[in-house]
C-alpha cells in the first residue's frame, strides 16, 4: 500500500507542477508599470515554493515507497536526529522569507506607500451595489461636492451632485467606463456608497477594497492600449458576481478627444 501511495503521490505532484510550469492557465497580460515587479516577485516565489513542493512531496513519496512494513528490515533512525533538520529548516526557510519579505515589501511600498506622481489624472470612483461609476473633474480641474442625500440612481446622479448651487459640479464628467490615457499616471480616489466593494483589474495586478466612510487612494500607470475588465472582489450582496466595469486605455490624443466629447454635452 505504501508503494502505491508513493506512485500516486509522485504522479499527482508531477502533474500538478506540470500545469504551472507549462503556464496552461496563467496570469493575463500585464499592462501596468508596477506589473513587471509583481510578476517577477511571483515568479521568484513560484520557483522557491516549486522546488520545496517537488522535493518534499517526492521525498514523502519515496519514503512511502521504501519504508513499508518489512519485517526483515531493522528500524532505522534519521541520521543525526532532529537537530540538523531543525537547523536546516530555520536557515533555509529563514533566508527565503527574509529575501521574499525584503523584496516584496519594496514592491508593496512602491504601490501603496508612495504618493501619486505630479500631474496625475484625477479620477473619482464611486462604487455601489452593483456598479462602478467614474468621475472626471472636467475643464476646471475641480470635483463638485458630494451630497449623499441627493444620490438618485434613477436620473444618473450617482455622486449626489448639486449642479444648481455648486459651480465645480457643473462640468464634472460622469461615466461608467474608466477611460485613461496611455502612459499617464492615474490617481484614483475611491469611495463606496453602501457596502465594501473592491477594485480589481487583473491586468493591472492591483486590487483594493473600497470601504464606505473612507476615501481610499490608489494610483497606477497603464502601459498598453486596450479594454480590460474591472471586477468587484469583495462580497457586496446578491449581484456581486455581476458587478463589473471596464478599463479602457487610449492613446493620449484619443483620450483628450474622448474627454472633450464627454464634457461637451
Amino acid at each position: 500500500m505504501g508503494k502505491l501511495f508513493g506512485v500516486v503521490l509522485a504522479i499527482i505532484t508531477v502533474v500538478s507542477a506540470g500545469f504551472i510550469v507549462a503556464h496552461v492557465w496563467w496570469m493575463p497580460v500585464d499592462i501596468s508599470t508596477i506589473g513587471p515587479r509583481i510578476d517577477r516577485q511571483l515568479d521568484e516565489t513560484m520557483l522557491a515554493t516549486g522546488v520545496l513542493f517537488l522535493s518534499s512531496q517526492l521525498i514523502l513519496a519515496a519514503f512511502a515507497w521504501k519504508f513499508g512494513d518489512d519485517k526483515e528490515r531493522k528500524i532505522k533512525y534519521f541520521p543525526g536526529g532532529g537537530g540538523p533538520l531543525i537547523v536546516f529548516a530555520i536557515i533555509l526557510v529563514g533566508m527565503e522569507i527574509l529575501v521574499l519579505s525584503f523584496v516584496g515589501s519594496k514592491v508593496w511600498a512602491s504601490i501603496y506607500m508612495t504618493p501619486p506622481e505630479q500631474g496625475s489624472l484625477q479620477v473619482d470612483v464611486a462604487a455601489e451595489q452593483f456598479a462602478f461609476n467614474f468621475r472626471y473633474p472636467g475643464p476646471d480641474g475641480k470635483f463638485g461636492t458630494v451630497h449623499p442625500e441627493r444620490v438618485r440612481d434613477g436620473n444618473g446622479n450617482f455622486f449626489g451632485l448639486d449642479p444648481e448651487n455648486d459651480v465645480d459640479a457643473r462640468d464634472d464628467v460622469i461615466v461608467g467606463t474608466l477611460t485613461v490615457p496611455l502612459g499617464q499616471p492615474v490617481a484614483l480616489t475611491m469611495h463606496s456608497k453602501d457596502m465594501i466593494h473592491s477594485f480589481y483589474v487583473p491586468e493591472l495586478r492591483i486590487q483594493q477594497d473600497i470601504v464606505p466612510g473612507l476615501t481610499i487612494p490608489l494610483h497606477f500607470t497603464a502601459t498598453k492600449v486596450g479594454k480590460f475588465e474591472i471586477v468587484c472582489t469583495q462580497l457586496c450582496g446578491l449581484g456581486h458576481y455581476s458587478m463589473r466595469s471596464f478599463l479602457e486605455v487610449l492613446p493620449q490624443d484619443q483620450f483628450d478627444q474622448w474627454l472633450k466629447s464627454q464634457s461637451g454635452d
Binding site: G2, F63, K76, G82
Partner: peptide, 22 residues
C-alpha cells in the same frame, strides 16, 4: 512557515527508516 516546515521535516524524518503499517 518555519515551525510548520520543521514539523513537516520531523514527520518525514519519522517516516525514514520506519516499518510503516499502511
Amino acid at each position: 512557515t518555519i515551525p510548520a516546515t520543521i514539523m513537516v521535516l520531523l514527520w518525514l524524518g519519522t517516516l525514514y527508516g520506519a516499518r510503516m503499517r499502511y
